[in-house]
Nucleic acid binder design. Structure first.
Lengths: 148, 148
DNA sequence: TATTGAACGATAACTTTTATTGTCTATACT
DNA sequence: AGTATAGACAATAAAAGTTATCGTTCAATA
């Protein structure tokens, strides 16, 4: 039993999900990847370990990992393109439960002075802040009676 | 000639794009929409004004508007899902030209104290900051010789 | 007003993601 | 340990979102 093996089993126990061979390999392979891999990239990489694995399994388990908090996704609103109709300077509040996006004025967030230059010589144009949290409606559902 | 009509013609002149009936109606319809409409939603709405319009036209012109700066998109990385492999607390630098995403530590941005509660009773879990700008490579391309 | 390159509509194709279905396996319970 | 069963798996079809192709029509400008 390796170290990551134990870690993964503990993670699964914590989040109440079953330990399977596919999930374990998936987790370990992803741990070894840098950057921000897409499901396809993960699939290509994990296929080297389990050639018979299905793309659907990769998708389902990435979802499961994200839902259960084992993993995080880069952006909560990557489904389809959305355009900005609010012309005022603003940022976004994104509900982590229902994914709803609402605007919040830049003032209400009082951000610090923006750097013009960042590590790696990155030239700053603007900041775009997503405040991740739970919207009022989803808070209500959480407190309220259980759904049928 | 209406007010928005004139506005739109000026915008097109500024950005060097042709004025067509479809683009004009598209622009006006979108101005009248709230929130963060998707291309499909825009299509449904604009179809009421121009029943014969094609979905492809909507997509092409939303792209054009975004590229030319007439319109902004909510998120620069909505293509496919991406998962986070960096476990440290960090944010992102997103190149507006090549869309590359790189990590930047939370310290390097020195964000203000996070509010726990925001307008509308939104309960904050965390902030996720995208710094939009131009990466070093794209700066080089810009300065350097013109491409073939 | 005639010319011409760009934009349009129709639709096929492509990419990404989800759903379905029959088989298999991990887990719980003897 | 042996078995029942809920859940996970692979294969694949289908849905959703987006882009490309191509013949026709229109806007810019001479």
């Amino acid at each position: 039993m390796t170290a990551t093996d134990t870690t993964f089993r503990r993670l699964c126990a914590q989040h109440g999900i079953a330990v399977t061979h596919q999930r374990q390999v998936l987790y370990e392979v992803m741990q070894g990847m840098d950057g921000h891999p897409s499901p396809e990239e993960v699939y290509a990489r994990v296929k080297r370990e389990i050639p018979a694995i299905s793309l659907a399994t990769v998708y389902k388990n990435i979802h499961l990992f994200v839902e259960s908090g084992v993993l995080r996704e880069v952006s909560l609103h990557h489904g389809s393109q959305r355009v900005e109709m609010n012309e005022a300077e603003h940022h976004h509040m994104v509900c982590s439960r229902c994914k709803a996006i609402s605007d919040i004025s830049a003032d209400a967030l009082n951000l610090p002075e923006q750097r013009r230059q960042l590590p790696g010589g990155f030239l700053v144009e603007r900041y775009s802040v997503d405040v991740i949290g739970i919207c009022l409606e989803c808070q209500g559902l959480e407190r309220g009676a259980s759904r049928v």
